[in-house]
Design a protein around this nucleic acid. Structure first.
Length: 713
DNA sequence: GAGCACTGC
């Protein structure tokens, strides 16, 4: 066991603002109602942003683009749109759009603002996220996810119904935010030219804008106001990107957080976390502890270690109550982290990154930050994705420490030396530089942006990564040989909110008369893991899966699961059950069959959305019935880029890249010896693994994908 | 015989 970690203090900086879950309490009595209104008025008035309302609105009037840096608790997300509404930015029925990176934020903030406006949600104030639209013609303040606004741009390239677009949490730099910023810059430019043209002021002709401009000729349209909101202090990069746009700073309201570092480097951060938890528990005053770990496995093993250590304490000492929280944990168990600790006990929340931005846990006074994070990495040359544990960035560390100062002064224990903090990267590498770009490229092409390499990204992805995506889209038939969006295949693919390879699979399956089966497959492949295998019930989980297994592979197994679930719903429907009862029955069925209910629910949502799209495209919901050869041939035609051949040593060779890969043990084919498979996922962990497999006849490759395999023997 | 942070359309 290493020596007890010891710490020294350094003044902390405020952390960025995060949306938090509102309690959603609904007033019942009128008196209660009046009190609540009064309270809301007071709260609004006391927000730091309230004192600069007039100045802010003036700045938006004067500047086409404004950068707003707002610290935690400044109220920018809820207040600024209301200021703009009151300032007359919704005249002529125009809408103020506010984008968020996360669905839950769009919903909770919209609810809060509707309440502040004393109006029903969905009228003046609404939200729109995938699968859930709560807006109407009357909506003037619209909260939405950034990805949804990108989709809207496909239908309305000038985003003509918006007078102002506010991009919130821009510092997070998600792929969607980055693409949106590039697009908005272009749209703003187009609308400016357009307005000038209509006003008989001659704008310089701009050929890059011609397609979008042409689409909107004859429509009266005003310039677009852009507001970029960021919580971090890096306003300069946004300002530079938008031609030196003005930046304003809004004070936050956050309690001070004492930050402490270790004197020595810690070789084992898990053990150091364990030691620090007990150090806080024994030496510090009341308050809950939040420890950031990298994944489920670390959380589970630390939980066991804490319990072991706690047993060595005298029975009358105060107790520790451990609540893990990570994304794949079923919601009921996640909720424990939000409950107060039993009296006399201290709550210790062991969390992944989920507690960094996505959820705010009440009662936290102490944060433990080992300074590591599990991050996705992508190799554009091999197409290989992997998850690696790397040091956090400074911005991330600040975000984590800020979690200790939400309700009162707090302390953050960083399990590394102060000199190490100074060496950390300023901010996390934007996602656009570490993911597959096929979807981004397809979207941009569909928006009429032909020159992807020359596109004005805030931070350009590598040339290799862009070229690789272009190449993949050509192979899928979405682009022609001269990099133009193909018609109808490319256009259809761009309309579908799916991975391009899955979109192509749907189009192919229409020709193979098995669209129904493929629709289920791509829906199931588009969501998080369907099977839930708790460590302590491994055998039971395996037995449950057996009843769905197909010897042909994982794709047909997924179809079987989906259909069994649909049958379960059908049964309770025939028993005239209400929707709520039906969902309950499905939930129970999932539990009994070791299926992740949340994932299945999500897959059903995707299924119904995509079904709507393909029907609109005029495709037929055909089924191949029991002809599984036909379906496997279809999978081959769709996923030919992901084919692998068995080698004499039992490993596989991915045909497109020549990489040596292994079957993942989670595949139903794992104990069998197929000669040739198509797969959907290639991940690197301890070795290269392929997941979601179906066995195919190797001869089908040359027959069904001759453009790719004809020259190979 | 492995193990997967987090989002989003």
């Amino acid at each position: 066991m290493p020596a007890v970690a010891s710490f020294r203090a350094r003044a902390s900086a405020p952390a960025p603002e995060m949306p938090s879950f509102s309690s959603g309490a609904s007033p019942q009595k009128q008196q209660h109602n009046a009190r609540r209104k009064q309270l809301i008025r007071q709260q609004r008035k006391s927000l730091p942003i309230a004192s600069v309302e007039k100045r802010l609105v003036d700045e938006v009037r004067k500047n086409d683009t404004l950068i707003v840096v707002g610290e935690t608790g400044s109220g920018k997300t809820t207040q600024l749109p209301q200021f703009l509404y009151d300032g007359g930015f919704c005249q002529d029925g125009k809408v103020i759009g506010i984008t968020q990176p996360r669905r839950v934020a769009a919903v909770t903030v919209a609810k809060r603002v509707a309440e502040e406006c004393n109006d029903q949600l969905g009228r003046k104030v609404g939200y729109s996220i995938r699968f859930d639209d709560s807006t109407s013609n009357a909506t003037r303040i619209k909260y939405m996810t950034d990805g949804l606004l990108l989709r809207e741009a496909l239908l309305d390239p000038l985003l003509s119904k918006y007078s102002v677009i506010v991009v919130d949490e821009a510092h997070e730099r998600t792929v969607h935010t980055d693409v949106l910023l590039g697009l908005l810059k272009k749209v703003q430019h187009s609308r400016c030219l357009h307005a000038n043209k209509n006003g008989k002021i001659s704008g310089r002709p701009d050929h890059s804008q011609s397609s979008t401009l042409k689409a909107c000729q004859g429509i009266k349209i005003a310039p677009l106001k852009l507001i970029i909101m960021s919580a971090s202090l890096d306003a300069k990069c946004f300002s530079d990107y938008f031609g030196g746009a003005k930046a304003v700073h809004i004070q936050g309201r956050q309690y001070p957080v004492d930050t402490l570092y270790t004197y020595q480097p810690e070789s084992d951060y898990l053990d150091a976390t364990l030691v620090t938890i007990f150090q806080i528990h024994l030496e510090e005053g009341p308050g809950d502890i939040l420890a950031f770990l990298t994944g489920q496995e670390e959380i589970e093993s630390l939980e066991r270690l804490i319990q072991e250590r706690a047993r060595q304490f005298p029975a009358d000492s105060s107790k520790i109550w451990i609540t893990p929280i990570y994304s794949s944990l079923p919601s009921e168990q996640q909720m424990n982290a939000f409950k107060p600790a039993p009296s006399g006990a201290r709550k210790v929340v062991l969390a992944t990154n989920i507690a960094e931005t996505s959820v705010t846990i009440p009662g936290i006074k102490y944060v433990i930050d080992p300074g590591m994070v599990k991050a996705r990495a992508y190799n554009p040359v091999t197409g290989m994705e992997s998850l690696i544990i790397i040091p956090v960035s400074k911005a991330q560390a600040l975000q984590r420490s800020g979690r200790a100062g939400r309700e009162g002064p707090g302390k953050c224990f960083r399990l590394f030396q102060e000199c190490e903090f100074d060496k950390l990267a300023e901010s996390t590498i934007p996602e656009i530089k570490r993911c597959n770009l096929a979807n981004v490229v397809l979207q941009l092409k569909a928006l009429g942006i032909d020159d992807i390499i020359g596109f004005d990204f805030m931070e350009k992805p590598s040339r290799t990564s862009i070229l690789k995506s272009l190449e993949q889209l050509i192979l899928l038939g979405a682009l022609t040989d001269d990099y133009k969006l193909s018609d109808p295949v490319g256009k259809q693919m761009a309309r579908l909110p799916l991975d391009p390879m899955y979109s192509k699979a749907l189009i192919v399956s229409n020709e193979f008369k098995c669209l129904e089966e493929m629709l289920i497959v791509v829906s199931m492949l588009s969501v998080e893991s369907i099977f839930f295998t708790p460590r302590e019930k491994l055998e039971e989980a395996r037995a449950a899966r057996k009843s769905f297994e197909s010897s042909e592979g994982d794709h047909i197994t997924l179809v079987n699961v989906y259909r069994a679930a649909a049958e379960c719903l059908e049964k309770s429907k025939n028993a005239n059950a209400k929707e709520k009862t039906m969902e309950k029955a499905l939930n129970r069925w999932c539990f009994e069959n070791f299926i992740n209910y949340r994932s299945l629910r999500h897959a059903r949502d995707v299924h119904s959305q995509i079904q709507g799209h393909v029907q609109q495209m005029g495709l037929n919901l055909s089924s191949c019935g029991d002809d599984m050869v036909q379906f496997r041939r279809c999978l081959t035609a769709a996923f030919f880029l992901n084919a692998a051949m068995r080698q004499p040593d039992g490993s596989f060779r991915a045909l497109a890249t020549g990489q040596s890969v292994q079957m993942h043990p989670s595949s139903v084919l794992f104990r069998t010896k197929p000669d040739c498979v198509v797969f959907n996922e290639l991940v690197r962990t301890t070795q290269n693994y392929v997941k979601n497999l179906t066995r195919i006849d190797p001869l089908w490759l040359a027959e069904l994908a001759p453009q790719y395999y004809a020259t190979e023997d």
